[in-house]
Design a binder for these strands. Structure first.
Length: 280
DNA sequence: GTTTAACCCTGCACGC
DNA sequence: TGCGTGCAGGGTTAAA
């Protein structure tokens, strides 16, 4: 799950669970459930800080969702590859790989489901958020209004590395993963292996605009749901942006702009998709 | 500083 | 049919 899916989920949560009071919090009995709350030593350290408290607001930082509680604590959530929230109630069976269940005083429950357990949840005091290493090191969020193209260009030039890995580096810019880095680079007309310090100011501006427009579009289409990685929203509904993808997963299919076949290359173990005609 | 590979984990596609 | 193998990916970490 990358920035657009996380943002769609945050908006769903904002509409549907803010204002609700958590009656009970359960970390499921499996070993994997302990992996989900790996920063806590015991289930109780986690659950006792949730039960009895109201969810007061939602925030997003990069690929993290923050749920603030009226106690002053914050529930921090990272979805990893396969993590997601699903709304349910006591009549609906828990899906396989449900790791955590929050039950509300009225209005069903909220399940955190994560088969591959790369996702994670933890509770921390809001004034300790600044001490959480991952959040501390997180770079600027591309949808934040302080993300300007001048600042972006300066940081780009400070690195001498290939564009794609840099765009996926959360310490450089937060929120892009494998899918959207490829889509952004296509929209910018730039290759995955262009060196970050080789861009003209026109290319920097193109890349900057491509980041914002691609992410906004993907949010508008409620995220990308691929066959193998079945992302769905809070209510189980898939996104629509997979129909808008220009390069990701389209090996051999004609480029939507120039009709030449899309190519997949391996870049240090990860796949990168591009149109060799449109990107340079 | 940059680059690569390995690791965590499960489900699925594939070939034999 | 059924098994083993490889791959997918977000992020961290160690090593080159």
């Amino acid at each position: 799950m990358e920035l657009p899916e996380v943002e769609v989920m945050r908006r769903d949560l904002d509409r549907d669970v803010v204002g609700r009071k958590i009656a009970t919090a359960e970390v499921r009995p499996s070993k994997n459930a302990m992996r989900t709350i790996r920063r806590h030593d015991k289930r109780k350290d986690f659950t006792s800080r949730l039960a009895g408290h109201k969810i007061s607001k939602t925030d997003r930082r990069g690929k993290y969702v923050l749920l603030s509680l009226d106690s002053g604590d914050v529930l921090v959530v990272h979805f990893g590859m396969s993590g997601q929230f699903l709304r349910g109630n006591k009549r609906t069976a828990l899906p396989a790989h449900t790791q955590v269940v929050l039950t509300f005083n009225q209005g069903g429950d909220l399940r955190f489901v994560d088969p591959r357990t790369f996702g994670e949840m933890f509770v921390t005091a809001s004034d300790e958020l600044g001490k959480v290493k991952e959040l501390q090191h997180l770079a600027i969020d591309p949808l934040d209004h302080v993300f300007t193209w001048q600042a972006f260009g300066n940081t780009l030039a400070e690195h001498a590395t290939k564009l794609k890995p840099l765009l996926m580096d959360q310490k450089f810019i937060s929120g892009l993963g494998n899918i959207y880095s490829d889509e952004v680079l296509f929209h910018a007309g730039l290759r995955y292996d262009r060196m970050s310090d080789s861009l003209s100011s026109q290319e920097v501006r193109r890349l900057y605009r491509a980041i914002q427009e691609t992410l906004q579009d993907a949010i508008r289409f409620r995220g990308t749901t691929l066959d193998d990685e079945a992302y769905v929203d809070l209510f189980g509904k898939p996104g629509e942006y997979q129909n808008e993808l220009k390069v990701y997963g389209r090996t051999g299919q004609p480029c939507r702009r120039c009709r030449s076949p899309i190519v997949m290359v391996k870049l240090s173990g990860r796949s990168a998709y591009l149109c060799p005609q449109c990107q340079s």
